[in-house]
């Protein structure tokens, strides 16, 4: 159902842009989906490299608790953050990690687990690692269908600095396709590599 209660967390380290990812999602939900949403960040005193996360809580009605209570979605781009913020997950939550930066994850995670070389993909396919956060928002969209593809694209464009619109749009579209691929895969553990991203990007261009 539209605007059902949903909680998502994007985690990483300072500089990766995860807080911006949360901001884009919350903005998109409120501006284009007519839902209520809050965005609530946590970071450290280090400008870059400290464990960082953002919680986005979505609902039809007023959101009381100002952080996530029980997560439906957890995406993590760094081990440091994973160790601190991998908690309060629902049993059917979706977990997305970049295995290159988050190599140590517990065995037998009960939730659906997507292992995606997100930083590599951002670097190789978009030319800059900083697009990882926007690809992540796209993956969220493709995996969860919480926000319409067209709406997350509008939200990305509204928040993109001038001159970066085309690349950001490309990044979110790539993320959406990666997310859809992971969604379509019925296995509990899904592996997505740079090759998958290259293929999806080529399909898009064709």
């Amino acid at each position: 159902m539209k605007c059902d209660h949903y909680e998502a967390r994007f985690a990483g380290v300072g500089g990766q842009g995860v807080i911006l990812a949360g901001k884009i999602l919350a903005y998109g939900m409120v501006s284009f989906e007519d839902c209520k949403a809050i965005e609530t960040p946590t970071y450290t005193a280090q400008v870059r490299g400290g464990a960082t996360k953002v919680d986005v809580v979505i609902d039809k009605y007023h959101i009381e608790y100002p952080r996530s209570e029980w997560l439906d979605f957890f995406l993590c781009l760094h081990q440091k953050s994973f160790n601190i913020y991998f908690k309060e997950l629902k049993d059917d939550a979706i977990v997305v990690v970049d295995p290159n930066l988050t190599p140590n994850i517990p065995d037998n995670i009960p939730q659906k687990l997507v292992l995606v070389d997100l930083i590599d993909i951002a670097k190789q396919e978009m030319g800059k690692t900083l697009y990882a956060a926007v690809i992540a928002v796209g993956m969220f969209t493709g995996l969860t269908k919480i926000i319409k593809e067209s709406n997350i694209q509008k939200a990305v464009l509204d928040n993109a600095p001038k001159g970066t619109e085309i690349n950001n749009l490309k990044a979110v579209k790539l993320g959406i396709e990666l997310g859809k691929k992971a969604f379509a895969c019925k296995e509990k553990v899904v592996r997505l590599t740079l090759e998958d991203a290259k293929m999806l990007n080529n399909e898009d261009q064709a």
Binding site: V30, S31, K36, A37, I38, E39, T40, I63, P66, R67
Partner: peptide, 9 residues
């Protein structure tokens, strides 16, 4: 801190 950094419409 939560109230200062929380964003919503």
């Amino acid at each position: 801190e939560v109230i200062a950094h929380l964003s919503t419409a």
